[in-house]
Nucleic acid binder design. Structure first.
Lengths: 159, 159
DNA sequence: ACTAGATCGTTGGACAGCCCAACGATAGGG
DNA sequence: CCCTATCGTTGGGCTGTCCAACGATCTAGT
């Protein structure tokens, strides 16, 4: 009768781990003056990164679909980012309902700083693993996450 | 300066993935009559599992420290579990402030059913990976999670 | 023995994240 | 020209998490 410390699917434990990471990230960011000053929330960086890494300036709808964020929540996040001067909302001339969200140079600079904070948090969480295993874990996580992002956004089955 | 297609530390993405898992778990559970009937919330199963796998009947304080759940939130979760007949709160005779939380036979049975639901969710999330990689990922996650649980609970340095 | 401080479980409230319903503005098809 | 669908936006509700404070109980100092 082994105590089976970790059962087959550590589903809720992973959910918990994600919450801890978000929390730790939020705490670390609260120490950064440039972030507090702009009123940046954790979700802002997910959006900022998606805008910057995307090939073309995406619409808010596409952005929300890709990240799994509700369009209504995206509004506030983009308001903050725009007020901070990190992104710009330009009307899509071909479809004036849409905004074409573009990243600014300051936005790209902010991403680098954000990456530094994220690296600190990642060290706290994944630092318990030896370097090789940690690399493997991060690679696998990226594969899972990107697979789900594609499945939600572009992976759609067009009728 | 690599183009860093997939960010160095997928911190927020992992946080997002955790939220997705919790959500998916909640949705799947909403379809199970035995869970809805008892008013079980996702966190209940984390607690139930911790109570069952622990060597001795833990106090609520120890339980909260291990799982990273605030004692005040643990109250409600245990109320639900006790009302469902899955756990019992017995006064610790050696220290009448504490409760010794014990799992019942029905509680153990509920864990098995819960594991089935969790397995379904895990398939949805990790199913995008080939079997071998999935196994590796789950193992690494378990190592990280247990390391943090030990660090939070048993890691204390008793004076 | 008696008091002072610490610990355990509990209550209540504050706060952020996530989701849904509904609305004006715009685009496309009959 | 009208009807429907889509985009961004507003508002509200629900849940999870955290913090402050309280009575009951244990522990330590005298």
């Amino acid at each position: 009768m082994e105590p089976q410390v970790a059962d087959a699917p550590p589903v809720l434990a992973l959910a918990r781990l994600g919450a801890v990471m978000r929390r730790a990230f939020s705490v670390r960011m609260a120490e950064e003056a440039w972030a507090v000053d702009a009123g940046l929330r954790p979700g802002c960086f997910s959006v900022l990164r998606a805008v910057a890494t995307g090939a073309t300036a995406p619409s808010q709808r596409a952005l929300g679909d890709q990240l799994g964020i509700d369009p209504s929540d995206l509004v506030g996040l983009l308001d903050v980012l725009e007020a901070a001067g990190y992104v710009e909302r330009r009307r899509d001339p071909a479809d004036r309902r849409r905004y074409a969200v573009e990243v600014t140079d300051e936005g790209r600079h902010a991403i680098e700083q954000f990456e530094g904070v994220a690296a600190t948090v990642a060290d706290d969480v994944f630092g318990v693993l030896p370097r090789q295993d940690r690399q493997t874990l991060e690679d696998l996580l990226v594969r899972v996450i990107t697979a789900h992002e594609e499945g939600a956004a572009g992976g759609g089955s067009p009728p």
